[in-house]
């Protein structure tokens, strides 16, 4: 499935926007201006953009926690200013400032983002069940990292998807590390996607540093699911350039990752790979790229300005008590 020019521009733009958001989050956290954790995305932002840039608004999706799913969310069409407000405990936050960074956007059929890794697999079965029953060709883009496949929920979700054939794409962003643990030390097989084969779920493995390759795989998986052919598994081989979360030492097992290791990884920077390709194929000129970057920088600056201007969410206890149960 080859991409047309407009699709490639969309992907490149969303990649640039994701990168811009991700870098400001790092800066904000280092400046003490972000609440909670931040799990930097640098080096691993292509899969989310590829997965979500061509979803429909009513498709269900669950973002991966890396870069806090911002690439997934903005690619799906969500305006992230309310996410920034949420992340800073503001009234204009998408969840009224109550969710820390584990937010949801029900209008976009995004309901879950849990600090319990792998807890999105089983509700995904329910979204897939609902999508199948509604018969409107919706799909479920179930994004997660390699680490979440240690959860029994992942296995139960795949088992039930395998039984019921709902339109679920298991989108694995395998960056080789779960906090400090090596994926190849935690999982017996070379590929996480080997697990899916035990459930008779078709698999595709893709270069997770290449946003266009990710999107092509996503489009194939989406078409498979929309056509009622049951679940699909895509494993994106990706990486990360920074520590697991800001403030945690950047280790591999018990040893710091060396500069040589990181430089080696940076040979395959998704931003560089995408830029070289759009230039080489004449999809975009350098001037157009610069404009896209400027627009992204402005978008992120505006989003932060909006979020910063929001008052803190500090309702009275009575208001909170009244918010626990639905009427």
């Amino acid at each position: 499935m080859s991409l047309n020019k407009s699709q490639m521009v969309t992907l490149f733009t969303n990649l640039v926007r994701t990168n811009e958001y991700d870098l400001t989050m790092y800066g904000r956290m280092m400046a003490g201006k972000l609440l909670g954790f931040y799990h930097p995305g640098e080096g691993g932002i292509a899969p989310g953009v590829g997965a979500c840039s061509f979803l429909n608004k009513d498709d269900f999706f669950s973002p991966h926690h890396r870069a806090h799913g911002m690439g997934h969310m903005l690619s799906k069409g969500i305006d992230l200013k309310t996410y920034l407000a949420e992340h800073t405990g503001k009234q204009g936050g998408c969840c009224a400032g109550r969710s820390s960074f584990h937010a949801s956007y029900p209008a976009f059929n995004q309901f879950m983002y849990s600090g319990f890794i792998g807890y999105n697999f089983t509700p995904a079965t329910g979204w897939g069940w609902a999508a199948k029953r509604a018969g409107k060709q919706q799909v479920v883009m179930m994004c997660s990292g390699d680490g979440s496949y240690g959860q029994d929920r992942a296995h139960e979700g795949m088992l039930m998807a395998s039984n019921w054939r709902p339109p679920i794409i298991f989108w694995c962003e395998n960056n080789g590390l779960a906090i400090h643990a090596r994926t190849d030390d935690m999982h017996p097989a070379e590929h996480i996607s080997s697990l899916a084969q035990g459930f008779d779920i078709p698999v595709e493995i893709v270069d997770g540093q290449d946003v266009f390759a990710c999107a092509e795989a996503a489009l194939r998986a989406i078409e498979h699911c929309r056509n009622g052919k049951g679940p699909f598994f895509v494993e994106c081989k990706t990486t990360r350039f920074r520590e697991h979360d800001i403030g945690t030492p950047d280790l591999i097992e018990d040893k710091p990752r060396t500069e040589e290791m990181i430089n080696e990884l940076k040979q395959r920077d998704p931003m560089v790979i995408a830029t070289e390709r759009v230039l080489a194929e004449g999809i975009l000129t350098q001037n157009e790229i610069d404009r896209i970057k400027d627009a992204a920088a402005n978008e992120v600056a505006d989003a932060w300005a909006w979020a910063d201007a929001q008052p803190k969410a500090e309702p009275c206890e009575e208001a909170l008590l009244a918010a626990v149960y639905a009427p």
């Binding site: 879950m112 089983t122 509700p123 079965t125 329910g126 609902a130 139960e156 039930m160």
Partner: peptide, 20 residues
């Protein structure tokens, strides 16, 4: 469902999100 309490319950959770 299979003997998968989390999967069984998660199905209900996801369906509830979707209005069931």
């Amino acid at each position: 469902t299979p003997i998968s309490e989390s999967g069984m319950y998660g199905t209900a959770m996801g369906a509830a999100h979707a209005g069931y």
